[in-house]
């Protein structure tokens, strides 16, 4: 009872579909002897081996550090650009087109460029994370600045509030949900960018493992790493969602 039953109640359909998918995978994997699809049990066994042997520890740490640095940079840079765009028409017109372009452009194309500039080190991966996430953070920060009710700003103005006080006491709290949504989307895109970049660079991090096992057709290990990446991304986004729910709840 308690949290377990409420978890089952809320996520019951998902758990059901997950079980069905796992079962299907296992049955298909066993009955058809495909090299490209080992049964789930073999993948899980490989997953356990990888985990226990410590083969994924270093890549996982590498990836996580690059992700963290990249996200912090994105948050700082994106917020700065977005706040500027939200508050000033001049900045909006000057930078808006780049942000819009960056939002829809296939950023993966820049990874080889980063590789040439920054080399094999973490800087390339950090740059990739930034390239993938900074534009969505900026877009949402700009929206956040425009989200405040003009009547509240007028009220603050009438009480003699300075521009800074209006920013701190009205615009920022009113825009907080948009900032946090930007952060959430930025993390999701950042993880995507990180792994994409790593697969492309081929020798680093989780993406490097994908490349490594993929090229030697070690399918159970390949699936194990892919599974790890999917879970990793879900946890990263889930973590940010939980934190932002906490922040917004505290504010309300």
């Amino acid at each position: 009872m308690g949290w377990l039953s409420s978890l089952a109640y809320r996520n019951g359909p998902f758990l059901l579909s997950l079980a069905a998918l796992a079962l299907l995978w296992e049955v298909v994997g066993r009955s058809i002897d495909l090299i490209t699809l080992p049964p789930l049990s073999a993948v899980l066994a490989a997953f356990y081996d990888l985990w226990a042997s410590g083969a994924v520890t270093a890549p996982l740490l590498d990836s996580t550090l690059a992700l963290l640095y990249g996200l912090v940079l994105s948050l700082a840079l994106g917020s700065l650009i977005g706040i500027g765009m939200g508050l000033s028409r001049f900045v909006d017109v000057a930078l808006g087109p780049y942000v819009k372009a960056g939002l829809s452009a296939p950023m993966i194309a820049f990874v080889p460029v980063f590789l040439m500039i920054f080399g094999i080190g973490p800087a390339t991966r950090i740059a990739t994370v930034v390239a993938f996430s900074v534009f969505i953070v900026a877009t949402n920060a700009a929206t956040a600045m425009r989200a405040s009710d003009p009547r509240l700003i007028e009220m603050a103005h009438s009480f003699g509030a300075s521009r800074w006080a209006i920013f701190r006491d009205v615009r920022l709290p009113a825009g907080a949900p948009y900032f946090l949504a930007g952060l959430r989307l930025g993390v999701a895109r950042g993880v995507k960018g990180l792994i994409n970049g790593e697969v492309l660079i081929a020798i680093i991090g989780l993406g490097g493992l994908v490349k490594k096992y993929g090229t030697v057709f070690s399918m159970d290990q390949l699936y194990a790493v892919i599974l790890l990446i999917v879970v990793y991304a879900a946890i990263a986004v889930g973590l940010v969602s939980a934190v932002s729910r906490l922040l917004v709840a505290e504010e309300k």
């Binding site: 009547r151 103005h157 009480f159 006491d169 009205v170 504010e251």
Partner: peptide
Amino acid sequence: PGPERATVFQSFALLPWMTVIDNVSFGLKV
């Protein structure tokens, strides 16, 4: 705007993320 004037608004214009006492003391805070 000046300190000798204060306005009461049609839409109330209260800050939804602040408690009542923080709203009341908003003018003093700024």
